[in-house]
Design a protein around this nucleic acid. Structure first.
Lengths: 199, 199
DNA sequence: TCCAAAACAGGTCAATCGTCCTGTTTATAA
DNA sequence: TTATAAACAGGACGATTGACCTGTTTTGGA
């Protein structure tokens, strides 16, 4: 018995994931306000009904992007590598090197996903600010914890972790404006001198 | 003879300056895309005709804000103080300290004006990117030149200057998201250790 | 005094924004 | 099978956006 050619197959999780992926991509490359719901609709290939079904408002979509995409990116590119490294300094160096290599390979520098949204949305909405603050905090905490484990009395773990996060975010902002990884390389070099236990 | 009560007094330069001031303020606190021409019109107390007469497009207004306001802010808060300081390290420390004091006094942290616009506009428009790149360059050059004057063989002036600019921008982004100057203080402390000739 | 250009007033315009509506199809459990 | 809710289609909605237009007033040089 031949199956009637179904016109549609419901896949709520897959659709939701596709919308989130596209939204995260567009929010990073164009910014939140410069990306319209229609853009996301067209780019993801979904109808307005489907988009509204999964995310009733643009803010809900933005919050989901932060909590389910941006946070995960920070976990993957920073938190896990730092935890897995044999020392904080080693982990930080590795992440910088990896970032530079990845961006050199790709054409464009889009900047730091957390920082991009943080700057555009922190003052616009309290919920956005809190969510982004949480991402920064987790990022910083992972580095601080690694530094704490090393029990180096010359090191202030919290301050140094904040310093690393700030420098990375700033370096990517400069690289974005310059469309070149040179600023990141300069910061990686200078930061290496400021990190403990050179080896 | 009593003067006829004139309904209007033309003051093109004053009006232009007022529009630029308001636009710079709104672009910094709300962002470029989140600020409408109507917002600027209302906030500056000018008519649509006057606004359009001085700035035909929003982009033209944005470019003028970058070149005539943001650039000037960087000159005043960074370039001049660094040039006037007895050493680069001393100048950098002074600017950080001044920024912290100013922000602690004020309620809100709006972030770095250059960085705010750079992140939102660098990928959106080539002219914006170039203009903002120029501001970053002037900022960095001033610090690099001061470092070069000191002829310290252990210091790479360009790299260290980039490092300082990145750290400052990133620190203000963190402070903006946290609405607290703590990240800037942490960065100032860590940066001081990385600067040459501690005194 | 006269006149051309600049400065400004006040509103219109199509396009686009985010939201939401009604209807249809698909999946799920009884 | 049947009922019920979730998933999705496709557009409509009023509000707002940036641009710009015509008309009036002011200004400064001839």
């Amino acid at each position: 018995m031949a199956k009637r050619p179904s016109k549609r197959t419901n896949d709520p999780e897959g659709l939701r994931r596709r919308i989130l992926d596209i939204a995260a991509e567009l929010f990073q490359s164009r910014g939140y306000h410069a990306t319209s719901m229609h853009d996301i609709q067209a780019e993801a290939g979904v109808t307005g009904g489907a988009l509204h079904h999964h995310f009733a408002t643009k803010k809900a979509l933005g919050m989901a992007v932060i909590k389910e995409r941006v946070f995960r990116q920070v976990e993957e590119t920073w938190i896990q590598p730092v935890q897995a490294a044999k020392s904080a300094a080693e982990g930080i160096r590795t992440v910088f090197k990896g970032t530079i290599a990845e961006l050199d390979q790709r054409g464009r520098v889009l900047g730091c996903p957390v920082n991009n949204l943080a700057i555009e949305l922190s003052l616009a909405d309290a919920d956005f600010r809190q969510a982004l603050h949480g991402v920064f905090q987790a990022w910083r905490d992972a580095i601080a914890q690694k530094l704490r484990d090393e029990r180096n009395k010359d090191v202030d773990p919290e301050a140094l972790a904040t310093f690393v996060v700030a420098t990375f975010s700033g370096a990517l902002a400069l690289a974005k404006t310059e469309q070149d990884t040179a600023p990141i390389r300069a910061c990686a070099k200078q930061l290496a001198q400021a990190l403990p236990i050179r080896r």
